[in-house]
């Protein structure tokens, strides 16, 4: 597993305590899991995502991510409606391992409250949290 200084933690996204990240793209928010999360899980073999159109509130589970011997729930870092899902993950779940902030994105959300993202952690705050784990 990676040491903390080896982690890729970009500063153009916000982070949630459950290790999801959120990036603003126009009026929408894109959500995935952090490099730390994918590294802890190991080789990801399956990602289960919600239906487009599902309305989910902050903290609600929107899917699961599976490695060979573990399953983790994915939680909404912000509330909103699922506007799109990353269909590529069905065939290629390894994208989450290889490009967690790029092609490994999971869902696109039309946020209920666009300000909700401001409550999430910055790169620095997230790094501090990881150091404390």
């Amino acid at each position: 597993m990676k040491e903390i200084h080896e982690l890729d933690l970009p500063d153009d996204v916000r982070y949630a305590e459950d290790h999801e990240w959120v990036r603003s793209e126009g009026s929408k928010l894109v959500v995935g899991i952090s490099d730390y999360a994918q590294d802890q899980l190991g080789d990801i073999v399956f990602v289960e995502l919600p239906e487009v159109g599902a309305k989910l509130s902050k903290g609600e589970a929107f899917g699961t991510v599976e490695s060979v011997k573990a399953v983790s729930e994915l939680y909404m870092p912000v509330g909103g409606t699922i506007a799109a899902i990353n269909g590529k993950l069905e065939e290629s779940p390894e994208l989450v391992n290889n490009q967690p902030y790029g092609q490994g994105w999971m869902v696109e959300v039309q946020p209920g409250d666009p300000k909700e993202i401001d409550a999430l952690m910055t790169q620095q705050a997230y790094l501090e949290m990881l150091k404390g784990l």
């Binding site: 080789d43 073999v45 399956f46 599976e66 060979v68 779940p93 390894e94």
Partner: peptide
């Protein structure tokens, strides 16, 4: 020897 369980599941 050790087997590729990741591909088996993917």
């Amino acid at each position: 020897r050790r087997l590729d369980e990741t591909t088996a599941a993917r």
